[in-house]
Amino acid sequence: MKKNLGILSLLMFVCVVTALLSDGFLSEFNIENLIRRTALFGIISIGAAFVIITGGIDLSIGSVVCLIGCLVPWLLVEQGLSVWWTLPIAFCISLGIGLFHGLLITKLRLQPFVVTLCGLLIYRGITRGFLNDQTSGFRGQFEGVRQLSLGMIPLPGTDVGVPVPWVILIVVAVAAMIFLNLTIYGRYLFALGRNQEAARYSGINTDRMIILGHVICSLLSGLGGLLFVFDVGSAQPVDFGNFYELYAIAAAVLGGCSLRGGEGSIVGVILGTAVMRVLKNSITMIDQIPNKIEFAVIGAVILGGVTIDELLKRLAATRRTASRVKESHSTE
């Protein structure tokens, strides 16, 4: 938990600054919207974290979001398929993509960066070609199932509610935390992320675990794509989900995942996602910051956060050695 304090303080800092410099930040509408978007991005960031913990990377998240996000309304509206057919199809496609990545990475020993970079290009290209760049939308139908993204669960006795995506995020996050921290497979993922060879020598089926990591990531990307399109109502193949993999990776890294693998916590990833969303929101809310420099601001804040974190870690390490020396002196 101590590890997450840093990112939590960054989140508080950005919130306080935005609240002071803008009028609308604390409005009920804005807060609710922020929570909803954080939940949606949180789901794909948790997926990214799984792959990053294995020491890999998934650059195809945004394109999978696009593929599923465009495909689902098309199947429902254009093809007239029922929800009970559409959702399993979306699930299977996402699962297949993760399996495909995992097999290429483990059996052919291709690098995750390369495999998923090609995935990024392929899935977007396929979606654009398949839909001929036409927007795919619900046209006001399927309001029922769209409540997965749009709905609110009212808190009894108050007039505020919890957005449904937030509930979905909590379910996903709790499941991920149980998996990572309490099951042997979670331990396997951390172990092989640090040192794949030693993990293999300890009897861990590392190939299977890496495939599993990619499958979980793609499934969550697919779930993300579904919820994103339910939220917005329509998706354009050209830019739906653009850069989402980078938001997800940035959130995971902010939340304490190391790209070297073997490190990361789910709570951290959610906090990291929140920082990303609040930052983006604050740029819109604060009039003094021109929207054009959005990326520069986000980049600078992340870089600053990561740098301060690293410096603090070093400081702590120096102190630890110093106190260790003191101890060994007092025992002598």
């Binding site: 331990r187 951390f190 172990a191 640090r194 060879e197 300890s202 009897g203 073997g262």
Partner: peptide, 23 residues
Amino acid sequence: QQGLILEMGIRENIGLAGLRRHR
């Protein structure tokens, strides 16, 4: 390289091979 995961605690290292057996 093969015997230890240097950045994981001694406890986790010693336990690693037996996780499955004692699950």
